[in-house]
Design a protein around this nucleic acid. Structure first.
Length: 494
RNA sequence: GCGCUCGUAGUUUAGUGGUAGAACGACUGGUUGCCAAUCAGUAAAUUCGGGUUCGAUUCCCGGCGGGCGCACCA
């Protein structure tokens, strides 16, 4: 039988799906929407919270060398002077009157500079203002900015964190939080927005430390598809199959940088999206003002291969800058050299809304046989873990179904659906990404058992009501194979 | 931000210078019913503002929003 060709997913189709299923809404839609802003709906917020929680478990709770903070979104205005973000502030956007090429120039160049391409006269399009400006104080307020990255607080709080949590180098600080950038043209659904969530950590290392004790064979064997700087400088985009170990060996990465890049890829493997990830090295001329080496982790989106995470080598830049600006010492005492030292920093970053979007792109599976979409999310991230259906929606069946709902609800996010045909109810849950559907049927009252139906295979097993909680826990954590969790039963079809 | 282009229920769409029809979905009720296709019913739309006109969802202008291209992206 000829396979029905499924059209390539468009980001529009995904956005419509997200709206329909309560995952993501356009912000302020009753006023016509507001470009660059999005709302997570009832289902989306569950998924997003699960994602953030999984990140926290993976990178903070599981480790001894990382602690978290949650800093204010608005910080002292001098923060951004120290960080170097204010320096590019006065830039002016210009457009060439002749060839229409848009660029930006420094404020003093206006009136003097000409188009770099054709030498034509430049017209000002106005001042660039990538940072969100706000004011603080009701009476005679002072200017302040909403943070464009979460990093700065982790530098500013460095000494307090090290002291109160008794951390010694090397150690990291993580936070997940909202950031704001006045993007010129928000685009591609959630991908480029003006308000977004970053999960970012600053990992502090002794400046002389070259070795990374934690870089073991597990990290070295992490396979990656690499687009390196040289290839890009030649104008090509050929990917190299390599491993973290090989890159470290070839001195393309120092050990700590390699370790963290491997950790990032390993989290994506855990999320099931690593097959669409490639690593892109930044070319010299695109490095940020603070970084000596940067790698992007790009995901293959419907609109192209785009950055969802990054890894920058920030060196001692930020701590040194804040020392200068504040006049305060930001350093630690090194017992071995008996000297005060300023740590160097590796910064792994994740655009969490982008990871969310990548998860949906990978999960979205139109099933031609079932004639509905199946959202194959990782089970542990699914907004709802199980849905309970009474086959007969009245009488003792209904009571038993309600009872199951009550007791499962204590441990899992569950849904209950007694309306429509059973097939329709399965389809609704397939689209919601619910991994398991529990059906209470005619026999359930007699044998005190129910069927569990698997989202991805539609196979069914019969499980005792008393074992449901433990069975679900094992299934969701992946510690138990579905067919081994109960007696496999034939699916009855009309 | 610039250029091109688009904007009818939640979704997909029909239609008209005289205020709109459908399908799917949602909701309510019925149906001894395991993979969206059973019956009955209900709610639900012309993106917003201004102009032309006796009258505009339809024509014109502007805003807002989307798509594509350019540019930008700590």
């Amino acid at each position: 039988m000829a396979e029905k060709v499924i059209g390539k997913l468009s980001i529009d189709e995904l956005a419509t799906f997200c709206k329909r299923k309560g995952l993501v809404f356009r912000s302020s839609e009753i006023y016509g929407g507001f470009s660059g802003f999005w709302d997570y709906g009832p289902s989306g917020v569950e998924l997003f919270q699960n994602l953030k929680q999984d990140f926290w478990k993976w990178f903070v709770q599981r480790r001894e060398d990382v602690v978290g903070i949650e800093a204010s979104i608005i910080s002292h205005p001098r923060t951004w002077r120290a960080s170097g973000h204010l320096a590019s502030f006065a830039d002016i956007a210009v457009i060439c009157k002749k060839c229409k090429k848009a660029t930006k120039i420094g404020p003093l160049e206006l009136g003097k500079a000409v188009c770099p391409d054709c030498g034509g006269e430049l017209a000002s399009q106005g001042a660039f203002n990538l940072m969100f400006k706000t004011s603080v104080g009701a009476l005679n307020p002072t200017d302040a900015y909403l943070r464009g990255e979460t990093a700065q607080a982790m530098f500013m709080d460095f000494k307090q964190i090290a002291e109160t949590s008794r951390m010694q180098l090397p150690f990291g600080v993580v936070q997940i939080g909202r950031c704001f950038r006045n993007e010129i043209a928000p685009r591609d659904f959630l991908f480029r927005s003006r308000e977004f969530t970053i999960a970012e950590f600053e990992f502090f290392i002794h400046p002389e430390e070259k070795k990374c004790e934690k870089l073991d064979s597990k990290h070295k064997s992490v396979k990656i598809k690499l687009l390196d700087a040289e290839t890009q400088e030649k104008g090509k985009d050929t990917l190299k199959q390599t491993t973290i170990g090989e890159m470290v060996k070839a001195s393309k990465l120092d050990e700590w940088h390699g370790y963290w890049l491997a950790e990032q890829v390993m989290w994506f493997e855990h999320l099931g999206i690593a097959d669409k990830i490639k690593i892109r090295e930044h070319m010299k001329d695109e490095l940020s003002h603070y970084s000596s080496a940067t790698f992007d982790l790009d995901y293959e989106f419907p609109f192209g291969s785009k950055e969802i995470a990054g890894n920058a080598n920030r060196g001692q830049y930020d701590l040194t800058q804040h020392q200068k600006e504040s006049g305060q010492k930001i350093d630690v005492f090194d017992e071995s050299s008996k000297k005060r030292i300023v740590p160097k920093v590796i910064e792994p970053t994740f655009g969490m809304d982008r990871v969310f979007l990548a998860l949906l792109c990978s999960a979205y599976t139109p099933d031609t046989k079932r004639e509905n979409v199946v959202l194959r999310l990782p089970r542990f991230l699914a907004p709802v873990k199980a849905a309970i259906f009474p086959l007969i929606s009245k009488g003792p069946s209904m009571d038993l179904a309600r009872h199951i709902q009550e007791y499962l609800r204590e441990d899992f996010a569950v849904a209950f659906d007694a309306s429509g045909s059973i097939g329709r109810r399965y389809a609704r849950q397939d689209e919601a990404g619910t991994p398991y559907c529990i059906t209470v049927d005619e026999d359930s009252l007699k044998d005190k058992a129910v069927t569990i139906r698997d989202r991805d295979t539609t196979k069914q097993i019969r499980v005792k009501v008393d074992d449901l909680q433990e069975t679900l826990r094992m299934l969701i954590s992946g510690k138990l194979a579905f067919e081994k969790a109960g007696k496999v039963v034939e699916t009855r079809v009309k």
